[in-house]
Design a protein around this nucleic acid. Structure first.
Lengths: 339, 339
DNA sequence: AATAGTTATGGAATCGTTTACAATAAGAAA
DNA sequence: TTTCTTATTGTAAACGATTCCATAACTATT
């Protein structure tokens, strides 16, 4: 059986409560007894039992992470390891630990999340994505459980704390960049339309077009379920249009890679025949051929700040809801040509 | 305050112990009372408190996941989301949940792991990597805590349960494949030498060479710290050799991408000037240009089986140590040319 | 009819902490 | 010397389950 606070108490000749206070480094315990107790802990090899502590404490010092359903292709995006790195860093700094949802279908994940919150497994939750109509977000909101989302909540942006990029702006910037390089026929390739990030980027693109008095054409808008077969067809269609686009705004680096691979197949060259700008600036963007011009959205910060906000909410449940905007930056490489 | 088992007991007019039994669906409780208790739970909106349960139970139904230090570039490999998917799937099937290590330096991670095991936060641990001299593995082994590793433990392969590919064999296969395609000058590009997987693949490569009576040349062996600047230099050196290789065995898809990007820069074409075979068959391999011939190591299965083994160990601490070998398969695409 | 054996449930201890409150001793003030 | 503080430590009740050990009410057996 593991060594408990009582064993330590006995050896150090104090009450269990005293030992507990020593652990918490309570200033009301004299240095002398602290020393004695610490020696006893050392000698017996004592370690707190977090379950017991959490029970007594009503706090777990752990954060729940909810990923998109692992069945989803999106899950394979290097975005996740990187955002996790940010989350993990901040959590570690504040001595919080991480708990992960499992489950592959949305239904399953919702159950897992319910388990986390009702079962008192976590003090707060980070949602790693934002979909247009998400049952999990709804649940968390209804329960008034502390949570933050990475990305912009579609329904109640003011009522839920979130950290996001200015995706509208970023897409607008990017499109304008293309326009300034002489492009007029610019197409947009986005991911699933139920992801808020997709709609934001789409509207930024649209706005830029409008402001430049360029035609917004429906046949220039394509939605690809991440880099999948469907995407390839979409690219084909785009290229076989009477007036094919000279440039593409692509909502994700990986999608851009997929597209480039298809383009390569049909012997169109980037950027000579067609220019591409994509989003996220995942490490891979640099190693594509040609290296991709991409919007760096600072994924690490997204994770880091999300935890930061979450901790504030946990600390003070009454804290008002915040919106943190992580800056983006266009990093130019070789996938864009000036016409 | 949350509703507890006692509240339910009161409402249903039974003892708390009875409620507990109903939760566990103990057959010794009559259907009638079960129904009554369940109604009460429903009415009050009861949910178990896992902390309390774990405390009483001495089991957490959760598994710890230890990733490589997030400071490490390796972390960004899509390998991890995919292996996590496997882990998560099997864990979910058996109603286990997941707990993640935080920390970026090895030291920090070790502390986190100590917290997990001493603090009774998890019932077992999966190590997502295998390094040649790993303090964490040593700790787990010394503590006789249930754990499995993905990859082959370098030091005590028979004493620790692990799931791995036959990397030696896979590398040998791949090298022979190249040889059978007429290549004689084949170089090896591996990752950090302290990863066991690197040394295994290197020896497979070497063996194939020996058996084919081809010269094993030191200047054909290059170690790249993942896809980083250093890697680029290494490629340059390789290509500026008097007798440059005609084919490359590359230990990781991402590394291969990095290499191809460099090759592209110096205007060498794959596969016309140089052939490449890599490992892992991450989704991206398919979207490289040209699409990469790569060894599919079945990452999902690695994760799935690792959890499978771990659960067995948790179930029965005396269970003997197993070694599960996940089969690999060469998937041929367009990065290899027949000479 | 008395005894043994089931079946369904309750009582109470236990898991390992935390923490409100009580108690004590020592020192300061009167 | 007595009383009041103050500093330090102890007592015991939570926290919310699980589970061993009764026990009561039946049924089956002799």
């Amino acid at each position: 059986m593991a060594v408990t606070i009582k064993d330590v108490a006995k050896l150090a000749n104090v009450a269990p409560s005293t030992v507990s206070r020593v652990i918490a480094n309570n200033p009301r315990i004299s240095e002398k007894t602290k020393r004695r107790v610490r020696e006893a802990m050392e000698e017996l090899g004592y370690h707190v039992n977090y379950n017991a502590r959490s029970l007594a404490n009503r706090s777990t010092q752990t954060l729940g992470i909810v990923m998109p359903s692992s069945a989803d292709k999106v899950f394979q995006n290097p975005f996740f390891p990187e955002v996790l790195r940010g989350i993990s860093t901040k959590a570690h700094e504040n001595e919080f630990t991480l708990y992960m949802s499992t489950g592959s279908k949305e239904e399953e994940i919702l159950d897992a999340v319910k388990g986390m919150v009702h079962g008192r497994r976590v003090d707060g939750i980070v949602l790693l994505y934002s979909r247009i109509d998400d049952s999990i977000m709804k649940f968390l909101k209804d329960e008034e459980f502390p949570f933050t989302v990475i990305g912009k909540p579609f329904k109640y942006p003011d009522e839920v704390t979130h950290v996001d990029n200015d995706n509208f702006r970023a897409a607008k910037d990017v499109t304008e960049h293309l326009i300034s390089r002489g492009h007029e026929r610019i197409a947009f390739v986005g991911g699933k339309l139920d992801l808020v990030v997709t709609v934001d980027r789409l509207s930024g693109y649209e706005k830029a077009l409008r402001e430049a008095n360029l035609k917004y054409r429906d046949d220039y808008i394509v939605h690809v379920e991440f880099l999948k077969e469907g995407g390839h067809e979409a690219v084909m269609e785009l290229c076989s249009l009477e007036e094919p686009p000279t440039a593409l705004v692509v909502a994700d680096d990986l999608m851009a890679l997929g597209i480039m691979s298809k383009l390569d197949e049909i012997e169109l060259s980037v950027p000579d025949d067609i220019s591409i700008i994509s989003f996220n600036n995942v490490m891979l963007a640099e190693y594509a051929s040609p290296p991709l011009t991409s919007v760096d959205i600072n994924i690490f910060q997204l994770g880091y700040q999300a935890v930061n906000c979450l901790l504030e909410k946990i600390e003070d449940a009454e804290a008002s809801n915040k919106r943190v905007c992580v800056p983006h930056k266009l990093v130019e490489r070789w996938s864009v040509k000036t016409l």
